[in-house]
Design a protein around this nucleic acid. Structure first.
Length: 103
DNA sequence: AGTAAGGCGGGCA
DNA sequence: GTGCCCGCCTTAC
């Protein structure tokens, strides 16, 4: 496939339903690049189609929200609306919300 | 072709 | 629990 790394990231991201979450590292790992977490963030940072890509469902591996093109504040609000519990800027029960990618 | 920057991750003080 | 450093990957100029 001539699809770039970013392209794959977008596809996986589209596969993540509302209420579910994933981490930069998890996405990278799902693509076969274990330590490409940063590359994933870079891809999402481009944010080609904010509406099509639920980038707000991607957070850090430690539970912090990470970043968001429209502002971390907005990101937190969206996640809360989807049923995600956030305390003090960190997502709790992250494992419960983590989405499993099944090829 | 080389360099720089970026929505991380993990380990250690 | 917080802060700092180093390491890894990709994209753009």
């Amino acid at each position: 496939m001539e699809s770039s790394f970013a392209e794959k990231v977008y596809r996986l991201l589209q596969k993540v339903p509302a209420g579910k979450l994933t981490t930069y590292g998890a996405l990278a790992k799902a693509l076969g690049k274990k330590g490409a977490a940063r590359a994933v963030g870079q891809a999402l940072g481009k944010n080609p189609q904010l509406v099509r890509l639920p980038c707000h469902r991607v957070i850090k591996n430690d539970g912090s929200l990470g970043g968001y093109a429209e502002g971390v504040r907005k990101k937190m609000a969206l996640l809360r609306k989807e049923g995600v519990i956030i305390r003090h800027g960190r997502v709790i029960f992250l494992e419960k919300h983590l989405h499993t990618f099944i090829p």
